[in-house]
Write a protein that binds this DNA or RNA. Structure first.
Lengths: 121, 121
DNA sequence: CTAATACTTGCATGATTGCGCATATGTATT
DNA sequence: AATACATATGCGCAATCATGCAAGTATTAG
């Protein structure tokens, strides 16, 4: 913890590193949220076809959604024969969420401290 | 419609409670992410005009974005005269992020335990 | 009172996105 | 070899969204 004055720029960098638009954009669709929930609740990796059964849309769309989640680092894909197994990247996903929470609180705390070290007004 | 897998619904409920589409949809726009970052880095609540200066878009658009964030519970608005001060709901925001991380890991762990009583991770 | 400031919102438009279908690629089966 | 299966992707369409402008609301100043 730095006791000297922290400029907002440092906070912006810290938060910006945790708030990549690609990450949140991958989670802004209800179908993708449902997919993430199901992958998290599933004991085993799911194929595209299996994942499609719980979303109510065509499997081609599910394939796209899973691709978006994969490129965002939310899920991992592994081929098994002609199937593709998708599983949640739980560790990195949870770490990203907690890292953002930490960054937000850290910046918030430093901002408050800088605003009133010894209140003048 | 939603064919149920042999999974505990508790996990889906738990995750579903933490992954409200409204929450992530509020964060899927780069401008809103920048606003959140700026609000977090700011020591003080920001007016719409102040927030507009760091986003490169018209203040009417910023007003809309802040409204979306407010309705999603990410920021709080308070009137001061003819200005509206926006500040980040840091506590609930961070709690949501950590709550989701906990729910994901909890479901993941229970799924793993159900799948293989002899954990082989 | 009128005028100015700060913000919100209705509207039109351009851009993005999700969707299903058809097709392509790769794999397994016969 | 051919055929069936699982997934990915190009295409077109419809719906959603972000943006700027203009008009409206609310508060303050004169």
């Amino acid at each position: 913890m730095t006791t000297r004055l922290d400029l907002p720029d440092a906070c912006l960098d810290k938060i910006g590193a945790q708030m990549q638009p690609e990450f949140f954009q991958a989670l802004c669709d209800p179908v993708r949220i449902a997919l993430v929930a199901h992958l998290a609740a599933s004991a085993r990796p799911l194929t595209v076809t299996e994942a499609s059964e719980c979303c109510g849309i065509h499997f081609s769309g599910v394939s796209r959604h899973l691709g978006i989640l994969r490129r965002a680092g939310v899920v991992r894909a592994s081929k098994r024969g002609r199937e593709v197994l998708y599983q949640l990247e739980v560790d990195s996903f949870a770490a990203s969420l907690r890292g953002l929470a930490d960054a937000l609180e850290s910046c918030w705390a430093s901002g408050k401290a800088a605003a009133s070290p010894h209140v003048a007004d």
